[in-house]
Design a protein around this nucleic acid. Structure first.
Lengths: 237, 237
DNA sequence: AATTATTTGTCCGTATGTATG
DNA sequence: CCATACATACGGACAAATAAT
């Protein structure tokens, strides 16, 4: 697997970015196929395939004789990896990343309730090992982040909801792609958290784990809610 | 706008269904391009475009000399309108529809909290009118369903989270497409609900509306949680 | 290690279909 | 009815990658 992109994908990315990042506004027309073909020095086939990619993502609509026009943002198929990437690479992406995070939190909160109901013994074992790794890495910032990811992921997997798993995986990929914006802020925030808060956080993780083990939905949900609200708070600032 | 599908889309749907509905299992190979081209009496170009569609949705992976193989289900891009439709049209789609509903409930629950924070005056007015329509249509099953939809939708819109709105709209389209399976069951269940339960449900809707109006996040969230749990319960049975 | 065969990937020229003005 | 502009479809040629010999 290489990072090589064929011509139509290159053009697709170029046009997709322009649209999602607002350089081509809804209602505006794209140049016609022949012009695009000449401008970029590619064949009409390449242009048509790129346009097809835009159409499939509902970013544009082509009608004969009229041309290809950018559709309103509400029509766009946001839950497409490429659209998400294009949007997350925009200059003014703060509000977009916040929205992404809000969805992620919503799903993670729901996943813990499902985990209580659906977790197998081996799922629970995974969650426990993830928790003990977390406990063992309080001092190491890097390790803690990794362990924290694995802890939440083990719960997500235990939900046995493929749609949630796939959704969060998409969100994570997108958020990682724009990590340079968000992670530094979180790190700085973390430095400011006191020892006590940190201890609280470990306790909350433990509470989540134990509640899942004893199948106490209300407890699990409540603890996760508290955990998540902290993240939401960090992001909002 | 017609329902006409071009040759490659027709083939795409045919192959996509076969894969998602398990007639072609992960690890199995598709016939090579030339064979497919002959079998269906279409050009190689058409076959290639259909395969491209499958590849874009991560249902298959093509490698030179080896051929095109079905990827594991966990790799599939589930959040694609077509994949969702193919999956919802499968024979054994009960568990899939349940998962869809679980995601929908998760998002709706999160949306109400966001609505409390983000709703404009006009958003709140929309929610109120939706509620009064609901109140006015207690007796009419048909009207009630419609009003209920509009009530929840008005809250969703008030969240001002485009990603959530787009996600739920996708879910709804899919669920409506397989309505024949789920709605009749809900209707039957509803008939069995007593007058009292029905009155409770109205009260819960009212509680949600008022909590949003006075910007009381905890109250709104709690009331919505109760409402949603009922739906979840209905579905589970 | 080099060669060959096989299969996908890419590009293009061209022809036909279709809807608009 | 014609000219325009885009969509769809076909098939040929060649490039790239890899398995097998």
């Amino acid at each position: 697997m290489s990072t090589y992109l064929n011509l139509s994908d290159q053009l697709l990315h170029e046009l997709g970015k322009q649209i999602v990042q607002g350089k081509l506004l809804p209602g505006e027309f794209l140049p016609k196929v022949e012009v695009l073909s000449e401008q970029r020095g590619v064949s009409r086939t390449v242009v048509r395939e790129a346009l097809k990619g835009l159409t499939a993502r509902r970013l544009v609509e082509s009608t004969t004789k009229v041309g290809t026009v950018v559709r309103p943002r509400s029509d766009w198929q946001w839950w497409d990896p490429n659209v998400l990437v294009w949007a997350s690479h925009a200059k003014d992406n703060q509000s977009f990343l916040l929205q992404l995070t809000e969805v992620r939190l919503a799903i993670e909160l729901a996943a813990v309730e499902l985990a209580v109901a659906n977790a197998t013994d081996s799922d629970i074992a995974e969650i426990e090992t993830a928790y003990y790794k977390l406990e063992a890495s309080i001092s190491d910032e890097q390790e803690w982040a990794k362990a924290d990811y694995e802890f939440h992921n083990s719960i997500l997997l235990a939900s046995h909801n493929v749609l949630m798993i796939s959704l969060v995986s998409m969100l994570r990929t997108t958020l990682i792609n724009s990590r340079h914006v968000t992670i530094p802020r979180l790190k700085n925030q973390r430095k400011n958290t006191s020892e006590e808060n940190f201890y609280d956080e470990i306790l909350l993780h433990k509470e989540v784990m134990e509640a899942i083990r004893v199948r106490d939905k209300a407890r699990a949900s409540q603890a996760m809610h508290k955990l998540i609200k902290r993240v939401a708070q960090l992001i909002r600032d």
